[in-house]
Design a protein around this nucleic acid. Structure first.
Lengths: 91, 91
DNA sequence: GACCTATTTAGATAAATTTCTAAATAGCAG
DNA sequence: CTGCTATTTAGAAATTTATCTAAATAGGTC
């Protein structure tokens, strides 16, 4: 969905923590929410933004929705940073 | 000033464009402002945020202020992205 | 179908961000 | 010191973002 959307998604500390949690594997919205002092509705809102930024994806199983890190989409951001930050980046 | 400040600074497209402009070398606030349809006050505000994030630094000469890219500070962000995105990053 | 459980959506509010205009500061030039 | 140029600061208005509560959806289970 574009660099801008991804960058905005990464700007929020809650959303970065969500991504960090997903590092260890897929989790449901409920599992993620347990680690925050925020309502499930709020977590759902953050998950929506991360999904729009394609930083995560979802797979449904029974009536759970599992969220997964979408590592490939970090590439765009890395490229931009390397480009501006003055380093080379091999894709 | 921390990852969070830097990430927030990078979330705005104007600020990213400013950084891109500085890639080719130091520029004054006025020179930067010329490339946007925004007032100098607004550009000054964005420069302040970039400075707080330590993504740029300033050097004064006569009564000009030159802004420079501070490439080294991109490292924190790259590290975080590599870490979460599942890639290795040698510091 | 009726009832759970998991999650999202809607609508409202609060808080943060971006932008502008106008005034203030700072340094050089005469 | 006065005036000029470059830039920032202050304060207000507009927009966007984050959060909550309550209601809606969706898929199992009995």
């Amino acid at each position: 969905m574009g660099l801008s959307t991804a960058m905005k998604a990464l700007a929020d500390p809650i959303r970065r923590q969500i991504l960090e949690q997903l590092k260890s594997g897929p989790k449901t919205a409920g599992e993620i929410a347990q680690n925050f002092e925020l309502t499930k509705a709020t977590i759902s809102y953050h998950l929506k933004l991360l999904k729009q930024a394609e930083l995560i994806s979802e797979t449904k199983d029974k009536n759970f929705i599992y969220y997964n890190l979408n590592a490939s989409v970090f590439e765009d951001i890395l490229s931009w940073l390397y480009d501006v930050g003055g380093k080379r980046h091999e894709t």
